[in-house]
Simulated scan of single mutants.
Amino acid sequence: MKIILTQEVSGLGAPGDIVEVKDGYGRNYLLPQGFAIAWTKGAEKQVTVIQRARAAREIRDLGHANEVKAQLEGLKVNLTARAGNGGRLFGSVTPGDVVDAVKAAGGPSLDRRRLELPGAIKAIGSHQVRVKLHPEVTARFDLKVVPGK
């Protein structure tokens, strides 16, 4: 099955890529989740629009990615979340929460889809977060979740 990715899918490709996948994977997962659209000649023309939007969000080049990496790794990011007794959070920390916390700490604006959280963050404490800035550059920073609110 030939599809056009609308979002980055780990191990498969980036938005705008035309890929060949097994029928079941495309029909039962990628298409219903909105990660891809079915390939047609008309849809292929939309690929340029998707790639232009991606280029606007994309880190410009390797040098810029390394600058953002240095900025992120020197940043102290604190996130306040509601927690109960024993340090368990009410809910969990989402990638959107992390992006907002990085921006509040004076860091660069990030795309939440590029964050790689270490599983679900459901407890207070320090957690290691990875951000894939460029195909060759991955930044890591500590996220300290503190009780509050």
Rank of each mutant, 00 (worst) to 15 (best):
R57N: 14
R57G: 11
R57T: 11
R57C: 02
R57E: 15
E58I: 09
E58N: 13
I59T: 15
I59F: 08
I59Y: 13
R60N: 07
R60Y: 04
R60Q: 13
R60I: 12
D61H: 09
D61T: 05
D61W: 11
L62A: 14
L62S: 06
L62T: 11
L62I: 14
L62C: 05
G63T: 14
G63L: 12
G63K: 12
H64K: 12
H64D: 14
H64L: 03
H64P: 08
A65F: 13
A65E: 12
A65Y: 12
A65N: 03
A65Q: 12
N66K: 15
N66G: 03
E67L: 15
E67W: 11
E67G: 13
V68S: 09
V68N: 07
V68T: 08
K69Q: 14
K69A: 08
K69R: 13
Q71V: 09
Q71L: 11
Q71E: 12
L72W: 08
L72P: 08
E73W: 13
E73I: 12
E73M: 14
E73L: 10
G74Q: 08
G74A: 05
L75K: 06
L75G: 11
L75Q: 10
K76Q: 13
V77T: 05
V77F: 11
N78E: 15
N78V: 15
N78Q: 15
N78D: 14
T80R: 13
A81V: 13
A81N: 03
A81T: 06
R82K: 15
A83V: 08
A83D: 06
A83P: 06
A83M: 06
A83W: 07
A83Y: 08
A83H: 10
A83F: 09
G84T: 04
G84H: 05
G84E: 10
G84Y: 13
G84Q: 10
N85C: 05
G86W: 06
G86I: 07
G87F: 14
G87S: 03
G87R: 05
R88S: 04
R88K: 15
R88D: 02
L89Y: 04
L89P: 02
F90L: 04
G91M: 07
G91Q: 02
G91K: 06
G91P: 08
S92V: 01
V93M: 07
V93W: 03
T94Q: 06
T94N: 01
T94F: 01
P95N: 01
G96L: 02
G96T: 09
G96V: 03
G96C: 00
D97A: 01
D97F: 00
D97C: 01
D97M: 00
V98D: 05
V99C: 00
V99M: 05
V99L: 01
V99S: 05
V99Q: 00
D100Q: 12
A101E: 09
K103G: 00
K103I: 03
K103S: 02
A104D: 09
A104C: 00
A105Q: 01
A105P: 00
A105V: 00
